[in-house]
Amino acid sequence: MSTTETTASGVGPVEGAPVYTVDNPAPLIEAPRKRTKKSPKSTRGNFELAAWLFMRLSGIVLVVLVLGHLLIQLVLDGGVSKIGFAFVAGRWASPFWQVWDLLMLWLAMLHGANGLRTIINDYAERPNSRLWLKGLLYTATVFTILLGTLVIFTFDPNIR
């Protein structure tokens, strides 16, 4: 047990010898969550509200679209074995199925992308990792939506 005068740093003998003294003060702990100039500015606008509402509404619509899609593709009329180029070409001959698939593509991609955006916001701590993850996410989303839309509208059943 140390018998030296340690009261100056406020550390009693119970805690052992002090690492820091008056001449060698402990490093100041910067509060990491302090609102500084660097912390994000408050936003005015309804983007988050719209995104929240979109998730609920698109979720409801997607339940119908996706379950219907799975039923047609995997269960009814011979199940998965019937799916082939001819089957897809036959369905996309009808504007109804074109719109169905287009709606499903857009809603599912936006719903999933917004969900991942939320997860990135919740879990990525550093602004830089957020930036990169979200950049990657948005790029992939836009690419998939555009490519899918292009295929649905320019699909040629007579392709060789």
């Binding site: 994000p40 408050s42 005015r44 988050e48 509200l49 916001n121 919740d122």
Partner: peptide, 14 residues
Amino acid sequence: LEILNDRDGVWRCR
């Protein structure tokens, strides 16, 4: 309500 409509407002509640 406007303050809580912020990016870090109620919409971050999970």
